[in-house]
Design a protein around this nucleic acid. Structure first.
Lengths: 126, 126
DNA sequence: CGGAATCCGAAAGGATACTG
DNA sequence: CAGTATCCTTTCGGATTCCG
């Protein structure tokens, strides 16, 4: 019985293999709310409530959850002003801004292709 | 009582508002498996089983589900060869390849920033 | 082989209430 | 105002089985 595996051709994106750090980060990043938060923040500094209002449809819980995760990954910086009532502001870090550039392109792609996609859907649904 | 709202400054990414077609498409696209499938397909033509093997960790069900959705959105083309056993091949369409360009950048960003992210995580977890 | 359908446990996510 | 915790419903997603 042969249990040793012949090593694969090792494609460049093999780095996205399951269980790798890259795949884990990608899974954090490649989710609807995280990307929309990045897009909404842009180059601005926004308060928690401003973000919540801008991101229609997000719940209080989802917003805090995603902001925590993004802060942990060093994508957003969280600043607490010790006033009363408290004022907490969020803004993208350097890496966050870098990621934003790619998200911008994805949004641009969406705007540019939505007509085509809609017609593809209608055609498929028959 | 004033119920009419003063119209907002109308930022450009207001197009991603909840309930819009753009937001809906973005939600389809901005998910882990869809993006990994796009990245895996690249410019190749792959069979269902080849895709499943390449995408470590995806289940039979998730793969079909995502491929159906992506086919419906016109991102992938599905070709059935009427042989026995059947042979089904997938490849990115024009729009799919366009989206792939942005996903490539996102993967590149991940590779480039993973060290920084990992240290940010360790620092946060204290 | 690729796909559909079923079942079922796990996880996501909303609503609410409470705290500093 | 921002955040946490709790409860509870919905959805996700894996395992399995059957069909072309």
């Amino acid at each position: 019985m042969v249990t040793t595996q012949l090593s694969e051709p090792a494609r460049d994106d093999d780095i996205m293999r399951a269980g790798t750090l890259a795949r884990e980060i990608f899974s954090d990043v490649a989710n609807k709310w995280a990307l929309l938060i990045i897009e909404t923040l842009g180059t601005e500094t926004l308060r928690f409530s401003e973000l919540r209002d801008a991101l229609e449809g997000i719940s209080h819980k989802m917003l805090t959850q995603n902001l925590r995760m993004m802060e942990r990954n060093g994508l957003v910086q969280r600043t607490v002003h010790p006033t009363v009532p408290p004022r907490v502001e969020y803004r993208l870090t350097g890496p966050g801004l870098g990621l934003r550039a790619t998200v911008d392109l994805m949004c641009e792609w969406t705007r540019h292709n939505m007509e085509h996609i809609e017609s593809a859907r209608h055609q498929f649904d028959t």
